[in-house]
Write a protein that binds this DNA or RNA. Sequence first.
DNA 1: CGCTCATAAT
Length: 735
Amino acid sequence: MASLPSLATSSTTTLPDLRKHSSINDQRAPPTAPEAVAKEPFPSAFYVPLLHRCAETKSTPLAESLHAHIVKTGTVQDLFVATSMVNTYMKCGSVASARNLFDEFPQRNVVTWTALIAGYVRNSEPESGVVVFVRMLESGCYPTNYTLGSVLNACSALRSVGVGQQVHGYVVKYGLEMDTSIGNSLCSLYSKCGRLELAAKAFQRIPERNVISWTTIVSACGDNGDADMGLRLFRDMLREGCEPNEFTLTSAMSLCCVAPALSLGKQVHALSIKYACESSLPVKNSIMYLYLKCGEIDKARKFFDGMETVSLITWNAMIAGHAQMMGLARDDATARLSGLEALNLFLRLTRSGTKPDLFSFSSVLSVCSSLVALEQGEQFHAQALKSGFLSDVVVSSALVNMYNKCGCIEKASKTFIDMPVRTLISWTSMITGYSQHGRSREAIELFEDMRLAGVKPNQVTFLGVLSACSHAGLVDEANYYFHMMTNEYGIRPVMDHFACMVDMFVRLGRLEDAFGYISSTGFEPNEVIWSILIAGCRSQGRLDLGFYAAGRLLELRPKAIETYVLLLNMYVSAGRWQDVAKVRRVMKDGKIGSVKDRSWITVKDKVHFFRADDRSHSRGDEMYEFLERLIERAKDIGYVPYNSVEVPSEGEDEEKTSRSTLHHSERLAVAFGLLNLPEGASVRVVKNISMCRDCHSSIKFFSLLTGREIVVRDSKRLHRFKDGQCSCGDFGALL
DNA sequence: CGCTCATAAT
């Protein structure tokens, strides 16, 4: 953005004191001599209603013919008519015509200036509005409440507190602080600039608050993330007897969506009926969204189906609601269904003849990320490109994230490079992407580029950087960045940051250092960290430390089957079969549940779903045969199955546990993908829990044997297998 | 006489 003119210089200009005048709005005599107007065949009274009508219909051709007529009759000399003409051009969107006309005026008054300023703001040229305001001041003309209202609007659009505060100074100087509308504008301005405390102060200073004042401050709280304060103010408003309108109610409802507070939202719903706002579409949209946010999907759908008119926002709310449900779902099957429903809603939206916007695209792209639905995601990419939404930073960031989550680091990187603008989220997505793909150096370099670009990293960014260090075993760099995070940026480390550090020592085989790090930092590890430690102890054959860690993990999650699997596998690797039997007995007595091993793969828009040892698939025989052959060929070139223990899967008893890990769900899904996807296409599988070492090892061989790229995203990591290698650096398979 | 400014749902 070009630099704004400094208002400081103009504020030194000596301006007359408006307060001396009896009325601010009535300072000047009409510019044209009265007799001249009276003699005109077409007085202003004739043109003004016509110009009004013209502005309403936004018809530039009509405005131009009226303009010609006005010039021909000489009425253009009438400042009233000429001002109205400027306003009309502005309302028709003809900014240049308005400006040309204005520049030709032999004289101007504050109304003319104001019409020009307001016109610029209306036509999304707030900067020009501010420039004109400065010129007006320099010309010795002083502003009215209308003028300052428009300039404050311009500052809002520019998100400029600095200029806004200077205009605020003029408000004070001209004694317009008492003006409710100006107070509202100030409140809105500070809120838009992210300064809730200043917005609240401006609100408090409004002597006569109207419903707009209240609505402005309530929604300001929502926009700035203080839902509690917003709801408190909403209650104050009702207590003071100010009646809410549809704007207030939608704002209040959206505050209820943040928590989310269903019962409170229902009260707001009741109020919307009381104040006869329930038929308002925005109110309906917000009610529907509340139900979605509260997990009441059926209610939301019923509400949606019952709406006779819907808007793009209605569709977007439904899509976003379902997309967000994915993260909150009880299990991954429910999450998947929710995601598919979001994609389905997008399809229905386009079929209804409505054009999707950036909200629609960012929601469906995030769904594709979670589903690892690459083909779908690429289609949305093409559509977004065609409709021009790719230039939106949220959409393109969602796209970068989608490609990363689908294992396509190259496409993610290309999208990232092509972005015209990048936010913290864009940078963080790409850094995390490199890190998850095992490209630590690039992650760190990009992080440094980000700092050079002047973007301030957050907790999540550092998580990406630290995990990159951990991945590559860069102990010094990890310490350096950890220190930078806390000291330079004042970011408090959370458990995930510690987990990166522990993971790093484990990867290096430095178990003592890993435990030492924990005790020296004094944090209490969570289950993720204990799991990493146990897996490390298994690899190093350190049963002493591993057993200790397993004990701590069991304290945290006594009934978790995954803990027992870790423990069992540790004993198996050490050949301690008696201990294996002992643990199995404990599990049986303790009625420890079963492992829910699930994987799925998308082939031609259809999701194929697998359980361990799944025999239900129609093309199952072919798949198993193929898998057996693949395993034999893998053994020929050096694949040695890991000694891993098999624990009972759901619905099975102990006799059947002699199966190998051969038929774990991800292997079935990979085999299915290799068989059914086009020749050479990458195979993308999603798995609900962490992969086991044996599957991990075998899939590396599969990638070598078939020459195919295989991506498996499990609950912990992304594994990209290519030419016999995995991007996780072989420390990603915990079980 | 002409400029009418401020608020909402994804």
